[in-house]
Write a protein that binds this DNA or RNA. Structure first.
Lengths: 138, 138
DNA sequence: GTAACTGCAAAATATTTGCATCCTT
DNA sequence: AAGGATGCAAATATTTTGCAGTTAC
């Protein structure tokens, strides 16, 4: 069975053309996607609003997660197995290439612990590295 | 001389009521400020557009910097001495309290180095920790 | 058949731009 | 006086909401 179908069913979501299409985009994507990336994609032909709602649904169900960025955009990327509905675990490093502008989730790189000042209790940590990615370094 | 005046002059910016007011807000603020925080502030009585332009000017001049967030908001905070016009150095940890929602720049906590996969060349690193801050932990 | 999803229209919000006027230097 | 900053109006862009029609299960 197709990967996207498996994911949708596992999360108890009804399978629709839009959801499958958007999920496939994420499965195919090298890195993270912005709302506008999805909307601009030529193979996407449904309503703006549906994109918003689908991204929201996927986020609520722990299928994708939002990636912090230094500009005003929101990026989304597939969650890994550890994510569950309503409880994301994305303690990995996000790499943003300043050349090709792609955002890559480095699942294999775990975020190091930091020592915070007394009284501060960490719950979740995110880390963003900007630089030149493997494809652009020549 | 007032701190805000010093900063504006040092950056060769003309001193206007709006710039001084906004800069004072940052100097007084515990943590970071969003555009909306500034606009909602009762002592701010100038145009929305001026706020946008002032934040942009301050960012361009290395007076404030944008803080990445996991939602769709942009936060701004004062830069430290290391920042220069057009070249930000904000390699410190940003702490977001999930209770009071305040964002605090932890200048004293430096971002640890991470080992990236081969071929990835880091230029700048940002780190966001969510948790309970010192004021909210009771 | 029913609940959930989608499209459309429209409202609400956020951001940008142009231009005339006013203020800082 | 000159250049830059501001306010206002308006254009653009983004996100949210309501509702009616359609689809998945």
């Amino acid at each position: 069975m197709e990967q996207s179908l498996i994911i949708l069913k596992k999360n108890g979501l009804s399978v629709t053309g839009g959801r499958k299409k958007i999920l496939d985009l994420f499965l195919d994507a090298q890195g993270a996607l912005a709302h506008s990336d999805i909307e601009k994609n030529t193979s996407v032909s449904f309503d703006r609003v549906t994109v918003y709602r689908t991204l929201q649904t996927f986020t609520d169900n722990g299928i994708i997660h939002q990636i912090p960025t230094t500009d005003n955009t929101i990026l989304y990327a597939l969650c890994k197995d550890k994510c569950e509905a309503g409880h994301h675990h994305d303690e990995h490093v996000h790499f943003i290439c300043v050349d090709c502008d792609k955002t890559i989730c480095m699942d294999e790189v775990t975020v190091p612990d930091v020592k915070l000042p007394k009284g501060f209790n960490p719950i979740q940590t995110a880390m963003i590295v900007k630089g030149i990615c493997n494809d652009c370094r020549n």
